[in-house]
Amino acid sequence: MTIQVDENEQEPWTVLRISGELDLVTSPLIRRRVHAAVAGGRHDVVLDLSAVRFCDSSGVGVLVAARRLMRSCGGRLRLILPARGAEDGAHVNRVLAALGVRRLFEVYEDVPAALDERTAPLSA
C-alpha cells in the first residue's frame, strides 16, 4: 500500500497525518479511519495532507464524504494543505482548487494553526 496514516490525539482533536498517495486503492483506508474516529466519539478531526504526493478523484471523494460525515454529527473537519507553490504536498491543494471544492474545506497551513481556535482558516 502506498499510504501511511499516523493518528495523534490532541484534545479535542484527532489528527490523522496522511502520507503517500490518496487514490482508488488507498481511499477506503482513510474512509475507515475517519469513520472509526467518529464511532469512537471523536467528532473533531484534522486531516494533515501535507505529505500526500498524489490525489485522484476517489481521494477527493473521501475528503468530501468526510466533510459530510463530520457535519452530520455536529463535528468539525480541518485540512492541512501546503500552499499551491510549495514543493511537497501542494498537489492536493491544486486538485481541490481545480475541481472547485477547495472552498468547502477549512484549510490551515500546519497542525498548530488548525488546533488553535484563534487562527482563521486560509482563504481559498
Rank of each mutant, 00 (worst) to 15 (best):
I80P: 09
L77Y: 05
M70Q: 15
R42H: 08
H43T: 11
L77C: 12
V52F: 02
A39T: 11
A83C: 09
R78V: 04
M70T: 14
R67D: 14
G75S: 06
R67M: 14
S72I: 06
V62F: 00
C55A: 08
R67P: 12
H43L: 10
C73V: 15
I80K: 07
A39E: 07
R42T: 12
R78T: 13
P82E: 02
R68V: 14
A36D: 14
R71Y: 02
S72F: 00
L79W: 03
L81S: 04
R84L: 12
R68G: 11
I80H: 05
D44H: 07
D56M: 07
A51T: 07
A66Q: 13
R68P: 02
S50H: 07
V46N: 06
D56P: 07
A65S: 15
G61A: 00
H35P: 00
A83S: 10
L77V: 12
R71H: 15
C55G: 04
L63H: 08
S58C: 03
L77H: 11
A39M: 01
A66L: 10
S57Y: 00
D56G: 09
V45N: 09
R67S: 14
C55T: 04
V64T: 13
A36I: 00
G85F: 06
R67T: 08
P82F: 02
G40H: 05
G40N: 11
V60A: 11
A65Y: 02
A65G: 15
G61M: 03
G59V: 02
G40I: 01
S57K: 05
H35V: 08
S57M: 02
R71C: 12
L47I: 09
L49Q: 06
H43Y: 09
R68D: 10
R78Y: 08
S58W: 00
V62D: 13
L81D: 06
G75L: 01
V46D: 05
A66N: 13
H35F: 01
R71A: 15
V38F: 01
R84Q: 13
D44Y: 05
A51D: 15
C55S: 04
R53F: 01
M70C: 15
A83N: 05
V46W: 08
G59Q: 09
D44C: 11
L77M: 13
G40T: 04
R76F: 01
A51I: 01
R78I: 13
G61L: 10
P82Q: 03
G85T: 02
A36Q: 10
L47G: 06
F54T: 09
A51S: 14
L77F: 04
R53N: 01
L49K: 02
G61D: 14
C73S: 13
V52T: 10
C73D: 11
G75F: 07
D48Q: 04
V45R: 08
S57E: 09
L47T: 08
G74K: 03
A66G: 15
R76N: 12
A39R: 08
R68C: 04
